[in-house]
């Protein structure tokens, strides 16, 4: 019992914000996992991260305009996806450049909006809260938004599952099979933007990238089947988020007492640990012998 108390500090399970954080964190983790596996396979981790920062622009705009932050998040994610797709680059290197340019523009705008809201309204905490978020501040009013962003993202992944997988093996093979590459990639970009907006909204921009990329990258080494890799990613993400929340709750009694360490720190550390362990396992795994080669 004392061990249990040492892990789960008193009041952990009866705390309202903690309960909401546990549920919301799990939902976000489960949406991010399949989307993230595809992001990693398609080499779009940068775009995934960029959306997180771009949505923070929308968050700042919402703070300045005094509207619901959710609207700002969703609108800026949509605008970011549209401009990336509009500037669409064919080669992979150029795609990063387009992503970086859109991201830079959004961050510049973010700087201005945060400055304006700081000087006009004195809400100087906006920078930190928008960028780093706080999973303990999730309100129940967000649920409709969470569902309306998360479900379409999952639906797109399910609908375009096979074309997306084939495209991640080779765009040429996909084109030869008659896959409409442009349509599929635009749909996926939309799903990526929606799931990142959802996670940035609830857990902050930093954590959203960590949950999108880390569990997915760790899962790639754990299963040779795409579906199972997604399941592993989901499991790793949920475990990381929950353990991170427990640790963050415990950290209120750590130095400096009463301030608490940020959840994102713990979750990122756990996700990275999962990735490192998985990579070590991959390296240890004997390379498959090229069978049937000997005469």
């Amino acid at each position: 019992m004392s061990v249990l108390h040492a892990v789960f500090a008193p009041g952990f399970f009866s705390n309202g914000p903690v309960q909401a954080a546990l549920v919301m964190g799990a939902v976000v983790a489960l949406v991010c996992a399949p989307v993230g596996v595809l992001a990693v396979l398609r080499g779009q981790a940068f775009a995934g991260h960029a959306f997180a920062d771009i949505t923070s622009t929308g968050g700042s705009a919402a703070v300045l305009l005094g509207i619901s932050p959710v609207l700002g998040f969703a609108a800026s994610a949509a605008a970011g996806a549209a401009s990336m797709e509009g500037l669409g680059a064919r080669q992979r290197g150029d795609r990063d450049l387009v992503t970086g340019t859109v991201l830079g523009g959004a961050l510049g705008l973010s700087a201005l909006l945060l400055y304006l809201s700081t000087t006009r309204q004195g809400t100087s905490g906006a920078t930190v809260s928008v960028l780093f978020g706080s999973i303990f501040a999730v309100s129940a009013a967000n649920w409709p938004w969470v569902l309306s962003l998360g479900l379409p993202a999952l639906a797109v992944v399910a609908a375009a599952y096979r074309p997306l997988l084939l495209g991640s093996v080779s765009p040429e093979l996909a084109a030869a099979r008659g896959v409409r590459a442009r349509l599929v990639s635009a749909m996926y970009l939309g799903a990526l933007a929606a799931s990142v907006a959802l996670s940035a909204l609830t857990i902050g921009a930093v954590l959203s990238t960590a949950l999108l990329v880390g569990p997915a990258a760790a899962a790639l080494g754990l299963s040779s089947r795409p579906g199972r890799a997604m399941a592993w990613a989901g499991a790793i993400a949920v475990v990381s988020v929950w353990a991170g929340i427990v640790l963050a709750y415990d950290s209120y009694s750590w130095p400096p007492v009463g301030r608490g360490w940020p959840v994102s720190f713990f979750v990122v550390a756990l996700v990275t640990a999962f990735y490192a362990v998985s990579r070590a396992g991959v390296r240890r795994r004997p390379r498959r012998q090229p069978a049937g080669r000997g005469s």
Binding site: L41, Y161, R162, V169, R177, V179, G221
Partner: peptide
């Protein structure tokens, strides 16, 4: 590390252009 097996790739040859989960 691509989590796709040879049999998955061949199967995608049959239905890789289709919508929906396999």
């Amino acid at each position: 590390d691509l989590p796709i097996r040879a049999r998955d790739l061949v199967q995608l040859g049959q239905d890789g252009h289709r919508w929906g989960l396999p």
